[in-house]
Amino acid sequence: MRGVPPTVLRVLVCGALFVLPSCGWGAPSAEQGERLPAAPLGVTAAAGSATSIHVMWNLAAEDPPVTHYAVYRGNTVVDEVPGSEHMVDVTRLEPSTAYVFTVRARNAAGALGPASKRVRATTPAAVAADRTPPTRPGGPHGKAVGSRAVQLSWTRSTDKGGVASYDVYQGTSKIHSVGGAQTATVVTGLRPGTAYAFTVRARDAADNTSPASDTVRLTTAPGSDDGRGTAPSAFRATTHRADGAYYIDLAWIAPEVDGVISEYQIHLDGHAATSLVWGGNPPHGTATHSFYVGREAGVAHRVRLRAKLPDGTWGGFSAERSVTTGS
């Protein structure tokens, strides 16, 4: 890959990192005809009870837009939801059983795109004759993160068989579930300048649901903002030289969001330069990436990046860093 400019498609198969140009990526050619939707990214699955599993994925920012998502258990379609939704509870499952799920996007013509990566989840064992719900989650609180997201947290519920999951409600609608060991989440994809009321309920393996927590009332910031709270943090940029060429080395920590971050966009000197798509599981903690910038020493560059959020929108930009080749 020596001397490959950032405008050329690069695929690192073994590392499961796909680096694509931001200009024209994904656009169909005349010979291709109508473009199929891409495989959904960021798919996760977690048991909600002994008989249900919560499947979630990132919304696609496609043009034309995705009209539906089909959720598969093995080779069987178990649910199909509108293109504006990115989660579903798969119910009527067997306790103590491992399941495999994939998600496919459907366009307005009814054509299905390729399947997402396969994700696995195992339902917990059923608790015989358990009709006692968990205690209500306590101490819920939260804060708005800019105009399109909120952070929520609560204290643990108790249950004789253990809490299997926590369900987050917006008004009377369940909008998300997290595992029983988790007591915080970030809800994205909200509307600017809007008041919301959130509650949390605990669920055990027997599908008993606790009373709702106290209500957390939050209002998102008005208008569009700079994505505060959705930007990558601890962003660093350095340079190195290899085989007569210079590369910029990046490191950052993904923003905390309601789902999985699978795609980033790098801006170089004020312009979109490269898109990164993690083909496998994104790294935990600090992520790193290097890209070619030329063979001349003493060239100054400005670089920053942003993440594509699970709701299909772009998050805020990281801090901008300045580097000079050969320094």
Rank of each mutant, 00 (worst) to 15 (best):
M1R: 09
A234L: 04
N281T: 10
T194M: 08
A61W: 10
R2I: 13
R302S: 15
K160V: 13
Y247H: 05
T286N: 04
A27N: 12
D214C: 01
A164L: 02
P95Q: 06
R306M: 08
E263L: 08
A237N: 06
F235V: 00
Y247N: 00
Y292F: 14
S322K: 12
R201Y: 08
H271G: 08
G326A: 05
A184Y: 14
S322G: 07
T158A: 11
R131V: 12
A149W: 04
V77P: 09
V55M: 03
T288K: 10
I53M: 08
L112I: 00
D225G: 13
S147R: 00
A251F: 01
T188Q: 12
T239G: 01
S153R: 14
T44R: 10
H301Y: 14
H289Q: 13
G229P: 11
G113A: 04
A111G: 06
K174V: 13
S147M: 01
R306S: 11
G110M: 00
V103S: 04
T215Q: 09
A111S: 11
P232N: 04
G110P: 03
G162E: 05
V260T: 14
D258W: 09
S22A: 15
L112V: 00
T219N: 07
A287E: 06
S116W: 05
T274S: 13
G42I: 02
G229F: 11
W314T: 02
E85Q: 15
E296N: 09
N208H: 10
P310G: 05
L276G: 00
A205S: 13
F291A: 00
A108L: 09
P137Y: 07
G316A: 01
I261Y: 01
G83M: 07
I248T: 02
A105T: 04
W154Q: 05
P310C: 06
P40M: 04
D167N: 11
Y246K: 00
V8T: 12
G83K: 04
